[in-house]
Structure formats: structure tokens, C-alpha cells
Design a protein around this nucleic acid. Sequence first.
DNA 1: GATGAATGAGGCTTCATTCAT
DNA 2: TATGAATGAAGCCTCATTCAT
Lengths: 175, 175, 175, 175
Amino acid sequence: MDAARAELADHGYREANTARIATGAGVAHGTVFLHFPTREELLDGIVMADGQADAAEVVPHLSGSPTLRALLDLHLRQLDAHLPFARMLARELPSLPAALRARVLVVRTPLAEAMRLAILRGQSAGQLRAGDPTTWLSFWFGAVERLLAHPDLFPPLAVRGPALRDGFLTLLECP
Amino acid sequence: MDAARAELADHGYREANTARIATGAGVAHGTVFLHFPTREELLDGIVMADGQADAAEVVPHLSGSPTLRALLDLHLRQLDAHLPFARMLARELPSLPAALRARVLVVRTPLAEAMRLAILRGQSAGQLRAGDPTTWLSFWFGAVERLLAHPDLFPPLAVRGPALRDGFLTLLECP
Amino acid sequence: MDAARAELADHGYREANTARIATGAGVAHGTVFLHFPTREELLDGIVMADGQADAAEVVPHLSGSPTLRALLDLHLRQLDAHLPFARMLARELPSLPAALRARVLVVRTPLAEAMRLAILRGQSAGQLRAGDPTTWLSFWFGAVERLLAHPDLFPPLAVRGPALRDGFLTLLECP
Amino acid sequence: MDAARAELADHGYREANTARIATGAGVAHGTVFLHFPTREELLDGIVMADGQADAAEVVPHLSGSPTLRALLDLHLRQLDAHLPFARMLARELPSLPAALRARVLVVRTPLAEAMRLAILRGQSAGQLRAGDPTTWLSFWFGAVERLLAHPDLFPPLAVRGPALRDGFLTLLECP
DNA sequence: GATGAATGAGGCTTCATTCAT
DNA sequence: TATGAATGAAGCCTCATTCAT
């Protein structure tokens, strides 16, 4: 599975190649299919396992009514901690097999939902402006995914991410 | 070329298949290669031709200091007018061959640049808040591309686009 | 036909390409097949026409009991005068279609036969050593064809040819 | 590899066909490419392996100052022992891919060099006439290759070879 | 469990030849 | 007579998957 992970990071989902995975794992090509019935199940398994692990990392920090800023930071830290995986998803999520794509999206909802609640809290507290939190989050997730998907076009996430976050917060906060 | 266009819309760049294009065009498979030396040149040709045509449509509306709202609307109208193409690009732009991707991005700069200038003008005129226009545009383009790339997740562009635009403008405008 | 000649010189018989010939002739691809029923008839026609023309050039010089030296020189001059054609034949004669190959060989016999007779005369006159003229001519033709077939391995025919001729004559002449 | 060898013998390098090789080997077409990355590497591998094996067979007999006659005989025996391969090379060597052709020629040098030295020794010993050994060897190799390349034109190598050898030696030896 | 050779369908490309215009 | 788009068979190569050992 580590070899498959590396293959996904290096070549993405579409171009991932079972022979290369086997080589990377130091086993014969056929051996891959003893452990996973098909290429798809192998790759999907990795994607889900990693997606869920990432989500699980995040969950403990979602309780206790964190501020939006804290959640944005959490999001950036987590992406940065799994950068190759995050990049692969940013690039290929839209063209992943429908079932896998749906499951990945589901796994990500807790963070998005926590952000939505944080926004609502901020608005109730008069710290954030009025407006639709879902739309706002579209801006955030869209910008972050775009940043990840084009690593040659933008500064690295560690640099550009905080700038995005500050810009985002400035727009949302009451002046 | 129309068959190739349809193939790109239906299957995307990576999965576009010369045999299916030939069938779609009602010719033999080999015939495709009389008109285009390779699959890549055919697909890239379509992508660039359509990308440039779209860009050209937009250019006349960029002169005369249009407002940001006008430009956002223009953007949405143009995407909606070429929805299958826009969706394909939103989905696959990050994994397109580097050369093609670069050319597509170049073709799109005039609109982005006009938006940037419109923001600057709005800021000078005291109608828009202070802040980095590039960051703001990251939010806009990110959200729009995300919307296009996941057509099953969001309402159609014609519905969701204006909502995005209004949300975006509300954030930028001085309260 | 000139275009086909050029194509044969540039690419050889096997790799000669009817589309390139048409382009070279400034006509449409299909037009080639108005004048020649098949690629093979076109190429074979060229090869035979040129082979016969070359042979015809040589024939007048075969009468009048020329010396072997004169004939060797004639051979070298004629090859040099049609170097691209001679090179193509040296390279590809063994793999030409059987019928064409046979005809090319027939066309060449007068020169070989004249050489054989010159050798016999030289032997009768006591100027050349005893031995089988056919074997000797195998050496000559073999060496010359080898020289032509590997232009990058040997000095040009104009340089190496005379050396070969002198070496050959020295071996044959009575000491 | 045996199937490829047979294919080379039957159809030559240019016309060798990977599908026919697969059939000959009793495997599926795709299987060929498990063992050899490309057609070219397969064919080149065969040619080099066989060329080197042939050369290696000869090498032990090159030491100990053999006579020219012994070397010519060795040459003929070795060609006869690998007749289909020798014929293929005689026919196609000039049109082989440049890199392969160069390697084949290199592999053959030891024999040619041994012949050259044998000639020099023969000349020193007063048994062979004065003259350029390289030119003489052009006659020998040229005649032998011509004989091999046109199997339908000449008696078989086993018959004609010794005659060529005797004719060659007679010309070189001091009368 | 592991191997790795084998499968076979599918992909792109070439090119001599045909034929409606 | 000329055109040139079209044909279609053939060629090389890839890769997920199977299976006898």
C-alpha cells in the first residue's frame, strides 16, 4: 500500500500503474492482485484510507467551538502535512470514479460543516458579516484547491496559504 | 473537428479516443490522421481554437473600464455559452500536457487582468474595500472552477453563478 | 518520375513513399496512380529505365576490344556519374523484388561480359595471369558494391575507386 | 528468441514482424513485449547476440599466427555454419539502423585484422606478393558478401566458397 | 502466499490504393 | 486528367488481469 501511495503521489490516479506499484513494493506484479482484487479497489482503498485518516486527524480539533481562523489554519496545516496526496486530489478529484469521488467528499464534510458553524457563530457574535456561509466556503475551498492543483503557478501552500487565509478573513470580518 | 469537440466534452482530454472520434465523424479511423498528424495535435488544436475563440469573444467587452460586476457577469455568460468545454477544462486543466495548459492559461489572462484593473478602479473610487485583488480573484476563479468541475454537486451554473457573483461582490464592496 | 527518382535516391526502394513522391512532383497523391498502376510498377519502371539508360551509356564503349583497365575505368566513371542511384542499388539490390532484381542484373551483363572477354584477351596476349575470369570479376564487383553500400565507411568512390582498380589490375597482371 | 531468429532468417530485419514472431513462438502478440521493450531491441539483441557468438567462435582460431588460407577457410566455415544469419546480414547490413550496423562491423574486426596480419606475415616471408592488404581484403569480403546476398545467382557457399578462396590465394601468392 | 509469464483487447499511427467530383 | 479525402488492413505497443507452478 505504501508503494501504491507513492505511485498515486507521483503519477496520479489515472496514470497509476499496477506494475510500477508492484516494483515499488518489491513484489511480483501478480502479487498485487492477491491483496486487492482490482486496480480500482487498490487505489480506491488507498484514497479512502488516507482521506479518512486525514479527516480523523482533524476531527478532534472540531469540537469546542473553534474560531473560523483556527479551522482555516487547521485545514492548511493538514493539507501541508499530506501535500502530495492533497495535490493529487486537487488535480484529479473531479475525474475520479463517481463512487470514490462521492465518498471522498463525504469524508471531508465534517471540516466544512465545522467551518460553516464557526461562521454562523461569528455572525451571531457580530464578528462576521452577514452572508451565506456556503457561498463563502466555496470561495475558500475553490481557492485552496486551485492553489494545490497548480503547484507551478503559485507560491507553495506554506507561503500562499496564510495569505489566502488572511485575505479571506479580512473579507468576512466586520470592518 | 466537431466530432473531436463532442468527444472532448463527453470523455475529456485524457480519455478522448481517436477511434470514437472517427466513428463520431462518420469516417474510418485512419482518416482522422489525414487531417491531424497525431491525437495530441488534434485535441490540442481543438482546445486552443476553442479557448482562443472564447477569449476573443470576451475581449471587446474588456475595453471602456467595465465594472467588476459587468466582468463577472461576462465571465459567467461566456462559461455558460460553452458549458461542456468549460466543464472539461475545469476538470482537467491541471492534468493537461504542460505546454497546452500553459497556452490555455495565457489565453485567459486578459479577462483576469481586466478584473484586476476593475478592482483597482473600484478601490480608488472608494467603492471596493482595501485588499489584494489577486487574492480576491483566486476566490472567484477557484469557486467558479469548482462549480464547473462538480456539476452533480451544485446547482447549474446559470443558477449558482449569479449567487456566487452576488456573494463575491457583497464581500468586496464597502459596507 | 523525377520525383520518384529523387525519392529512391533519398529513401531507397523499401522506404520510398508514394505520398512523398506526389509532393515532390507537385501533384496530388492520387495523381500518381493515374500514371502508374501501383507503387511497385512506378519504382520498378524508374529502376529499369535508369538501369537501362546507364547500361546504354556504356554499350558504345564496349566495342573495339577495350582493355580491362579501360573497362574498369568506364565502370567507375559511370557509377560516379549516377552515384545516388548506384548507391541505392548497391544497398538494396539483394532485397529488391525478385523480378526487378533479375532484370537489373540482366541489364548489367554486357559490361561484365565485356570485362570477361577483355580478361580472356589479356590472358591470350600473355598480359594477364591464368585464372578464372568469373572469379576475378566477383572480386571486382563485390569490392565496388561494398564500397558503394557503405559510404560512411570508406573514402568516396572517386578516391577509393581508382585505388581499387589499380590493386585489382596489379593482382591480375603478369609480374 | 528462436522465433525471432527464424523470422530474421525468413524475412530479414526490415520485414521482420512482431506478430509473426509471437505466432512462431506460440505466444500472444503482446507477450513479445514482456521480454523485449521494443521490436528494435529484440531484433538488435538477436543480431548482436548472434554476431558476437559467431565472432567468439572465431577468436580462438585467430591466435598462433594462422596462415591466410586457414583464416579464409575459417571464415567460410563459420559463414556456412550460420548461413541464414550470414545471408541476412549480407543482404541487409547496409540498411540496418546505423547504431546496430556499427556494432556489427566492430564485432567483425578481429577476423579482418587477423587476415591483414596474416597477409603482412605472408609478404614478409616472401610468400605473398606486395600490395595493400586492405584493398585485397575488400576483394575478399566483397565477393563473399555478394555470394551470400544472391543465393539464387551463384552456387551454394559450400561449393563456390572454396573456389573463391583458391582464386583469391592464387592471385596473392607469388608465382 | 508468491511468482512472473502469459493473455488479449484496445490504443495510436502509416500508407498504398480507390473513387466521387 | 487531376484532385484529395477516404479507406482499411497492418504494424507496434500498453496494461489490467489470470493462472500454473
